[in-house]
C-alpha cells in the first residue's frame, strides 16, 4: 500500500500568547513541533505499512526548516519525505494550501491512501484535508477514530460524530483525517533516528509542481486576516454580590452563552 501522510510544522500552541498590553505576540521560547494530530496520522500509516506492506511518504508545505518534521517522521517509520517550499506560497489560506498540496501529490505519483491530522493546532480549521480530497477528486472521511479493517483496496473505520460514531467503508484511493483517539504514536527508534540523520529530502518549488501562480500564496487565497487581537482578559476575584438568589440570577445571565 502506498500511503502519503501530510504533516505540518507548527508553533507549540500552548506557548503562543498575545501580550494584552502591547498587543504583540510573546513567542519567546515557542518551539516548533510536528502538528500533534499529524503524528497520529503518521503512526497509523506506519502501522498499515507494517501490516500490509508498502511505503509511507510524508509531505509537508512550509519554509525550508520544515524538513525537521520530515526528519522526525523518518525516525518514526516513514520511508520518504517531500517538502514543497517557495516564497510564493506565503500567505496561503486553506484553499491555496489544498491546491498546492494536490499539485505536490500529483508530482509524487501513485498512491492508495492519504492520511492527514484532523486539523493543525495553529489554525484549528480542519479544512485542508477535505480540501485536498476535493482537489484530487477522491473520497474522504474525516475524524477517523479507529480503523477496523484494512486491505490494500478497502478500509472500514469509525468516524467520530458529535453523538457517537458512524462505521463507514471506503475504497482506495481515499483520504482520511484522523483524531487522537486513533492510536498512540510511537517514540522514534534509535535505528530510525540514525536513518533520519542521513535522509535526504526532495524540495519542490512552485514551478516544480506546475502550480498556477494565481492559485497559490496570498493571491490564491480567498480569505484574508484583517485583524489579530488578544481574547478578552481574565477577570479576577469578581465575587458577585447581593442575596444568594440575586447572585445566581446574575450568574445565569453571565453564562447565557454557554446554556
Amino acid at each position: 500500500m502506498k500511503i502519503i501522510v501530510c504533516i505540518k510544522q507548527v508553533p507549540d500552541a500552548k506557548d503562543v500568547r498575545l501580550d494584552p498590553e502591547t498587543n504583540t505576540l510573546a513567542r519567546e521560547g515557542v518551539q516548533s513541533i510536528m502538528n500533534p494530530y499529524d503524528q497520529h496520522a503518521l503512526e497509523e500509516a506506519v502501522r498499515l505499512k507494517e501490516q500490509l506492506g508498502g511505503e509511507v511518504t510524508v509531505l509537508s508545505m512550509g519554509p525550508p526548516q520544515a524538513v525537521d518534521v520530515l526528519r522526525q517522521a523518518i525516525s518514526c517509520g516513514a520511508d520518504h519525505g517531500v517538502l514543497v517550499s517557495d516564497r510564493a506560497f506565503a500567505g496561503a489560506d486553506t484553499w491555496a494550501t489544498s491546491y498546492t498540496l494536490a499539485k505536490a501529490v500529483h508530482k509524487i505519483g501513485d498512491f492508495d491512501l492519504i492520511l492527514c491530522g484532523k486539523q493543525a493546532i495553529d489554525g484549528d480549521t480542519a479544512q485542508v484535508g477535505p480540501g485536498l480530497a476535493i482537489q484530487l477528486d477522491i473520497p474522504f472521511v474525516t475524524c477517523v477514530q479507529k480503523v477496523r479493517e484494512a486491505s490494500g483496496t478497502e478500509l472500514v473505520m469509525e468516524r467520530m460524530m458529535d453523538d457517537g460514531y458512524d462505521v463507514v467503508a471506503v475504497s482506495c484511493p481515499a483520504l482520511l483525517t484522523v483524531v487522537k483517539d486513533l492510536n498512540e504514536p510511537r517514540v522514534p527508534s534509535l535505528k530510525g533516528k540514525m536513518k533520519a540523520k542521513k535522509a535526504e529530502f526532495k524540495i519542490l518549488s512552485a514551478e516544480d509542481i506546475g502550480a498556477d501562480s494565481s492559485c497559490i500564496g496570498l493571491p490564491g487565497s480567498p480569505t484574508q486576516v484583517v485583524d489579530v487581537f488578544p481574547p478578552p482578559p481574565r477577570g479576577e476575584r469578581a465575587i458577585l454580590t447581593g442575596s444568594i438568589e440575586e447572585q445566581i440570577e446574575q450568574l445565569v445571565e453571565k453564562l447565557a452563552v454557554y446554556l
Partner: peptide, 21 residues
Amino acid sequence: AIGRSFIPGVANSLGAGLTAD
C-alpha cells in the same frame, strides 16, 4: 462534526473562502 467535515469540501469545490469556528 458534520459541518466541519463537509463544508470545507463544499467551499473548496466553489473556490470560496471559508472561516472555521
